[in-house]
Design a protein around this nucleic acid. Structure first.
Lengths: 297, 297
DNA sequence: GCGTTCCCATAACATCGTGTTATCCGGAGG
DNA sequence: CCTCCGGATAACACGATGTTATGGGAACGC
């Protein structure tokens, strides 16, 4: 029996006549008549007795109807479930954000995603870049936004934006007057430095070395936010990513781009062996848009 | 989604590729390819990511697959159930037999039915004719074999055989010498009579009256079996239906037809508003055959 | 590097299931 | 007796689903 046959049989049982079943299914009466005959022929089972021009369901038909009713509900559930999935309901997306993107870019994207898919369930977590990979590989997260790509064979990296190094200083600082800073401009300042064992710290250190910026740093931190917090307290100036600079303590701090600082990628990381859900795809788009918007602003 | 779509989707999920799904379903690969594209279009939901020429199920596909698996089992159950019904399994037939048909005719038919449908469940019960109607009307039985028809609007009677009155006497009795008895032959015998308030008793009494057989009866019974039992004990001769005469205490009794005795019907009674099952239909056929066979023997 | 192989997509066509309208037949009821 | 209602049948239309032939991209081995 195929689905149409189940539908027709059910309709005839419910309606009690071929004509009414046809009305129920919004088709013409001969179609139902022929289908019903075909079902009986195919099953080799008389389902209705034609008596005085009316249909009389046999006990077999009644027994079959019980079974069919259950299945029918199941089929409707499949279609309903597909609708749900389309709207994102009952689907979840677990997003990891690197510390620098976790301030504004990713939250804004997640907020947009949540409003587009009100029924979806979204989990968001900030994590040091290093930790992200394990989470993705163990399938404990679906998507990560990171400031460095990966060469892990199980994961795929897709560039979705860019960041660069900027110099952060308290509002009103002498550097405010310049639109662009040169490496030499920061030489005389007290510099808050990044630990070299963080990915960003290494990038900054590499660049400093290549630019011959050898700053005297008395404080060492492991995150851009911490650097900004210190700078806001007058502990010196810091070189951090522009995403953090833009978002962190912006009422107390100002920043300027640095001439010649490298342009680095922001990546969406996901498990290679599993296709993204609609939510995942959309999240990547929104994150890219959010990053572009931040870059402009 | 229709059944074919569910089948195809399931096959692709199980096989992991369009090509293998096609093999699984014994159809060509392009059919599956097109169907899959159609499903995605219709659902508005990307189910597989085409990556490096391979298929990668999305989380949506995996979620849908869970739902689909259940329904698929349900559909198979419907077909299985139909097969069962065809073979009579899980179907029951509740048969009532009148006292006279309950001796041989109906049991023989039921035995044949049970061997034709080994999986069927058959209930058999003897009941006074009067009680049968209520059972049928209350749907506590499906079919009754009775020696009288009914005019109840809810029930339908179908003639399936005939019976007649015969005279029963102990083997070796003087009447043995005759092939046919005349009403006057029984005049001089001690007659075991039927209560007039049983249907059969009334028929016998009516016929006796019309034949001017006014027998001296000292014993009155309410069933043919009882009459035969008495006759076997030498209590006299009895006028009973030929079905009972043939079957009851036949090693001690003999019987002869009576000239001019009426030919009466045996009927299959069933609820008019419900169609017979395959079992019911077949039971009627077998009962008719059994009665015909008894008539010949 | 190049041919081979595997897998998916597309095109063109055949067939069948399922829909339609028109029509007939039998039973019920005024 | 005629009409109405419900079911069955015939003839036809169309879309779903199947087929074969073919092309393109990625992976693999020589």
């Amino acid at each position: 029996m195929n689905l149409r046959q189940i539908e027709v049989f059910r309709a005839v049982m419910l309606a009690g006549s071929v004509t009414d079943a046809a009305r129920l299914l919004h088709v013409s009466q001969p179609g139902i008549s022929r289908m019903l005959a075909h079902i009986e022929l195919q099953l080799g089972l008389r389902l209705f007795e034609r008596k005085k021009g009316r249909l009389l369901p046999t006990p077999e038909a009644q027994a079959l109807h019980e079974e069919v009713s259950e299945v029918y509900g199941g089929i409707r559930r499949v279609t309903e479930r597909a609708e749900e999935l389309k709207s994102g309901a009952r689907l979840s997306l677990r997003v990891l954000a690197s510390p620098s993107t976790a301030l504004v870019a990713v939250p804004r994207a997640v907020a947009a995603l949540a409003s587009e898919y009100p029924a979806a369930r979204i989990y968001l977590e900030t994590l040091p870049t290093r930790e992200m990979l394990g989470r993705l590989i163990r399938r404990e997260a679906d998507l990560a936004i990171s400031t460095i790509p990966t060469d892990n064979a199980l994961l795929a990296s897709k560039p979705i934006g860019q960041w660069r190094l900027v110099c952060v200083f308290p509002r009103g600082h002498a550097l405010t007057s310049k639109r662009l800073l040169h490496p030499r401009d920061v030489l005389n300042e007290r510099l808050i430095s990044f630990s070299r064992d963080t990915p960003q710290g290494r990038i900054i250190a590499d660049w400093c070395a290549s630019s011959q910026v050898e700053a005297a740093s008395s404080v060492e931190v492991r995150s851009g936010q911490m650097a900004c917090a210190l700078a806001a307290c007058g502990a010196g100036i810091a070189i951090v990513d522009d995403l953090t600079a833009r978002a962190c303590r912006s009422s107390e701090l100002d920043f300027r781009p640095i001439v010649g600082s490298p342009l680095l990628g922001i990546f969406a990381l996901a498990h290679e062996g599993f296709a993204p859900s609609v939510l995942g795809k959309r999240m990547i788009e929104l994150a890219a848009a959010s990053l572009k918007q931040a870059g402009r602003g």
